[in-house]
Amino acid sequence: MNETFEKTALHRDYAASKLGMWLFLLTELGLFFGPLLLYVMHDIRHPEAFHAASSGLDRTIGFVNTLVLLTSSLTAALSVASIRRGKTELTLIFIFVTVTLGGIFLVNKYFEWTGKIAHGIYPGGDAFAGLPPGEAVFYGLYFFATGLHGLHVIAGMLVLAIAAVLTASGIVNKRDFVKLENAALYWHLVDIIWIFLFPFFYLIS
């Protein structure tokens, strides 16, 4: 392939990059629509079991994690605001804080999961098999949805890390920052999904 063949000019369509990203975020929402729909259907059928199971989750950790993610969304937005003003260093700091907060979220999640697993409450665990029918499904969905979300957190952290590298090397700069903007958008999505998961799993009882 020679140079004229690579239509470099096309790669710089800002509005297209944004539109493409929004469409992609839409598909991510679709991905979580499935488990949430299953949740609602099962909740209608086993309301008591769902409430009982939900009260077994640690609300404090859930709440702390919600705050952590909300803050990280703010710092992600601030990183974009900084690059617009050309403040590269500040941008990098904000990205760093965002990624760190993502890490804290995962560490909390890890303790939450291992706590449940230690009690045998996980698909395949001893206690799981003995749970009343609805409660098993609740935890099955809990592990599936938060696990899938956790993978998105990891993906978001990677994307932000890449954006940081691009910023440091000047590829993302004051005039061309759509890559960072899209990374931040993705991070907001990760946040928004959690805002849905949190009340569903932690607050219904």
Binding site: P123, G140, F143, F144, L148
Partner: peptide, 27 residues
């Protein structure tokens, strides 16, 4: 994406047995 997540659920059922489609566990 809705098909996608449904397929992931089938895999999760087969590998871990999360129970959402399994009547024995209330699914």
């Amino acid at each position: 994406p809705i098909l996608g997540v449904n397929l992931l659920l089938v895999i999760a059922e087969r590998v871990f047995g999360i129970g959402v489609f399994d009547p024995a566990k209330g699914g």
